[in-house]
Design a binder for these strands. Structure first.
Lengths: 338, 338
DNA sequence: TTGAAAGCGCTAACAC
DNA sequence: GTGTTAGCGCTTTCAA
């Protein structure tokens, strides 16, 4: 390993002091042109790079943002990451991405690790388990300390902080309206258990649309999928009802795709006999057959917006207007399944 | 912001010296039980966390690994990340993930940033553009310096370094053999342009299988997809041949999924009239209808293995056996499309 | 125009 | 058993 150059070694080799080198490298006018050129040439030749650790320690800022997501094998979060990354890079910020794997303990560890000086601020989408257990102490602690943090997508309800969310209720409403506008009245929903807020909100939108259109809400048309059991089978049950729905709103892409498969097995034609609409940022959706109509979630925009809010906090330290919430609106992307 | 506690403030508040605090916090036997307890209690109460920047600077190691991937919106890379993460976490290493977006300049920037002290070692899957332009200077530079680095999946050919790869030739061979074993002889391939090594290698495996089985290689059965044009149309052309193939090997999941869609449009029954096999780590594959038979790429294993190799370098500094290559073998995952 | 010194937060060798 | 000091790599007063 060719020995690593740093300011001190440069100074020694050139018989000047470290501070001279430091200044010369920043083109300071305090240093004579001659010395400056000499030092810069040397630094370039030996490929000097300032040590970012030392810089961060010195400047008390790391120029990196922390990002905690529940998972990454998920097109939506991948898109979010892209959004965050673009905005951060523009301002010369780097990104440290951590996975909570929807696990409370892991989330706490991530927080711990990231906030020990490694990052200047945090972007978080909260783990499922955290909601289930209702333990937000790790976040509350950070907020008390005034640590800059912006939540997105899966956000804690009772904490007053900056958030970026998708309007899930409106999304569910739009999805259902899309089916209603296509002349359907018997509309089912594949939802999550109630504690998953996004699913719950989308379901509220669904109910709202039905009510507004004076369509009776048929209890047997609502399935709260239990992911610990066979998903296909739970969906098939709905499709096997003697008076099965003609339209189906799935609160995520996976359920929608499986519904398509099950419909096929049961020889139900899509969209003729059953219209299906999903909710996501569309990845599988384009490759199913038929392709899937969905509610676009705009992950990229969400990530970009969240990063923007965080950077604002970091750069204009002045305004500490807490608890802003930015809502990303959704829209229907029409494909073949409706 | 409640003032941040550090060793110095603790020392001042407790009227001891910083080194006493430091030692007490590490349960050093040099410190009396009484003082130790007192300091530990204080630290706990005020939620003291050692500053990782300072630690890294001091210890000359960051306990974090850098990971550069071309993209993240890709199930395969997501799986790789999981693999890396698991292994790294087990050894208390953190992860810094960067995206090159298949862009040479971005890749160079990432390398620059990560190797300025932020990470102890690097895991890289090389950008497409880097291969196209053949500029590996940024990597060569690091290797000269002895910076620990392990390449995976998309690896530079002419650089003697540690690598983890999938046996793409064998994978292509297995995929083709799977079709042949199903009694097919007219087998087409949806491949990439030749400069994409993974596609090229898989295609070589395809040819090998045909040759070994004395099946004539029909030129019109090989499509080198140009992604800048309409992919569906290029695939449809193959399916519209008067004497179209009965089996189809797609070198990635996307082409396979689109082939399924096009076949459907042309009323070609799958798998009765056409068998399709893809190459990937399966995400879309499970949700198409019919579900797609694929060659499993084992992204998780690849990530885990790469991380393991890197950590080995970092932890047992002794053996610097350069240029190890670990090959991950593939296997057929049978689903409905064949 | 240049350099010495202090300090970011931490630790370890070496006093006391 | 506790404290002093120096140093990881860098910058920034302040003095020369």
């Amino acid at each position: 390993m060719s020995k690593k150059v740093n300011i001190k070694t440069i100074a020694a080799d050139l018989n000047v002091s470290p501070s001279t080198v430091s200044k010369a490298l920043k083109d300071s006018h305090e240093i004579s042109e001659e010395t400056r050129k000499k030092i810069q040439a040397y630094a370039k030749y030996y490929n000097y790079k300032p040590n970012s650790l030392a810089l961060s320690l010195r400047n008390q800022r790391t120029m990196t943002l922390g990002l905690i997501v529940p998972e990454i094998v998920h097109h939506f979060f991948s898109r979010v990451i892209y959004g965050v990354e673009s905005v951060a890079n523009e301002k010369d910020y780097n990104l440290m991405i951590c996975l909570s794997k929807d696990n409370l303990e892991k989330e706490k560890q991530n927080i711990e690790m990231l906030t020990n000086g490694s990052v200047d601020g945090l972007l978080v989408s909260v783990a499922k388990e955290t909601f289930e257990k209702g333990d937000f102490s790790h976040f509350e602690h950070l907020l008390e300390q005034g640590f800059p943090i912006v939540f997105f997508d899966r956000v804690p309800d009772n904490i007053n902080t900056d958030k970026v969310v998708v309007d899930d209720v409106a999304g569910g409403y739009k999805a259902t309206m899309h089916l209603i506008e296509n002349g359907l009245k018997k509309i089912g929903i594949l939802s999550t258990p109630p504690h998953v807020t996004v699913g719950n909100d989308r379901e509220r939108g669904y109910r709202k649309a039905l009510k507004e259109n004076k369509i009776n809400i048929e209890d047997s048309y609502t399935i709260h999928i239990n992911e610990k059991e066979d998903i296909s089978q739970q969906i098939a049950q709905l499709l096997k009802l003697p008076d099965r729905p003609k339209g189906l709103f799935a609160v995520n892409e996976k359920y929608a795709a499986i519904a398509l498969q099950e419909a096929k097995k049961l020889d139900i034609n899509i969209p003729e006999e059953l219209s299906v609409i999903g909710f996501t940022d569309g990845y599988i959706s384009k490759y199913t057959s038929p392709t899937l109509t969905t509610i676009a979630q705009h992950g990229y925009t969400m990530g970009a917006k969240a990063a923007e809010m965080l950077l604002n906090k970091l750069l204009n330290k002045t305004d500490n207007s807490l608890g802003q919430t930015y809502v990303i609106s959704t829209n229907v992307v029409k494909r073949e399944s409706t």
